[in-house]
C-alpha cells in the first residue's frame, strides 16, 4: 500500500506518504493564505523525498475539515482530481481527528479537546475520550459559549491557543495545526483494521454567507 495524505483545512499545507507500516515522507508549510500555491509543490517534494511517483499511490486520504472554506477546498478538489486521474479510492477524515491523533503521538492521553481557528472569533472543535475516539460531532462555536462544556479538559490546537479564557489548560509540546503524517497514520490504521473510511465530503459547518439583496432601491427622490 502507498497512501497519500493531504490536508489544507488549517494554516498548514501538509502532505505525507505512508507505506502501510510507517510515514515514509512528509512535507508541511504553514501559510494560511497560500494553500493554492503551496500544495502541488509540496506533493511533488514529498514524492521526490520518498523516491517515488504519483502513479504508485494506491489510496488517498484528505482532511475534510472543518476549516476555512477557501483553503479547505484546495485539498479536497486536489485529492478528488488525483483520485479520478489515477483511478484510486479517495477517503475523507475529519481534520480534528488528525490533530487528536497527533496529540496522542505526542503523549496526551484522554479525555481532551481539539480546537482550531474558525475565524470570526469562533473555533472548530470536538471532544475526544482518547486520541482515536471522538465523542462529539465537530462543531463551530464562540469559545465563551463552550467554556462550560470544555472546562477542566486539556485542549490542543491553534484555536485553544487563541482563546485561553475558554481553554485554560493547553499542554506544552502539542500540535498546533494539522500534520498529514498523523492523518496518514490514523487512516492507515483504520484501513488495516478493515474499517470503511468516509467519503471526501467537506465539513463546512456553516451555511454560505448569502445576503439576499434588499428590494430594489427607489432612485427617485421623495
Amino acid at each position: 500500500m502507498l497512501l497519500l495524505a493531504l490536508d489544507t483545512a488549517t494554516p498548514a499545507v501538509t502532505v505525507a506518504l505512508h507505506d502501510g507500516s510507517t510515514v515514509i515522507a512528509e512535507s508541511s508549510d504553514v501559510d494560511a493564505r497560500r494553500h493554492g500555491e503551496l500544495l502541488l509543490p509540496a506533493v511533488h517534494r514529498t514524492l521526490k523525498a520518498a523516491g517515488t511517483e504519483l502513479d504508485a499511490v494506491t489510496e488517498i486520504v484528505v482532511g475534510a475539515g472543518p476549516g476555512p472554506y477557501t483553503g479547505l477546498r484546495v485539498g479536497l478538489v486536489t485529492a478528488a482530481t488525483f483520485g479520478a486521474a489515477l483511478g484510486v479510492p479517495v477517503h475523507g477524515l475529519c481534520t480534528l481527528d488528525g490533530i487528536a491523533y497527533a496529540a496522542g503521538q505526542a503523549g496526551l492521553e484522554g479525555p481532551f479537546v481539539v480546537a482550531t481557528d474558525a475565524r470570526r472569533k469562533e473555533v472548530y472543535w470536538a471532544r475526544y475520550d482518547d486520541a482515536r475516539t471522538r465523542v462529539t460531532e465537530p462543531a463551530v462555536d464562540h469559545p465563551a459559549d463552550l467554556a462550560e462544556r470544555v472546562a477542566g479538559l486539556p485542549a490542543v490546537g491553534a484555536g485553544a491557543l487563541l482563546y485561553p479564557a475558554a481553554f485554560a489548560d493547553v499542554p506544552p509540546g502539542m500540535p498546533e495545526h494539522q500534520s498529514a503524517g498523523a492523518l496518514a497514520s490514523l487512516a492507515a490504521g483504520k484501513l488495516a483494521r478493515g474499517e470503511e473510511l468516509p467519503p471526501p465530503r467537506p465539513l463546512y459547518l456553516r451555511r454560505p454567507d448569502a445576503k439576499v439583496p434588499a428590494n430594489y432601491k427607489v432612485v427617485t427622490p421623495k
Binding site: G36, L39, L40, V43, H44, L54, R73, V74, V77, T78, A79, A80, T81, F82, A84, A85
Partner: peptide, 8 residues
C-alpha cells in the same frame, strides 16, 4: 487546483 492536480 483541479487543473494542477490533473496535469500533474
Amino acid at each position: 487546483s483541479a487543473a494542477k492536480a490533473y496535469a500533474y
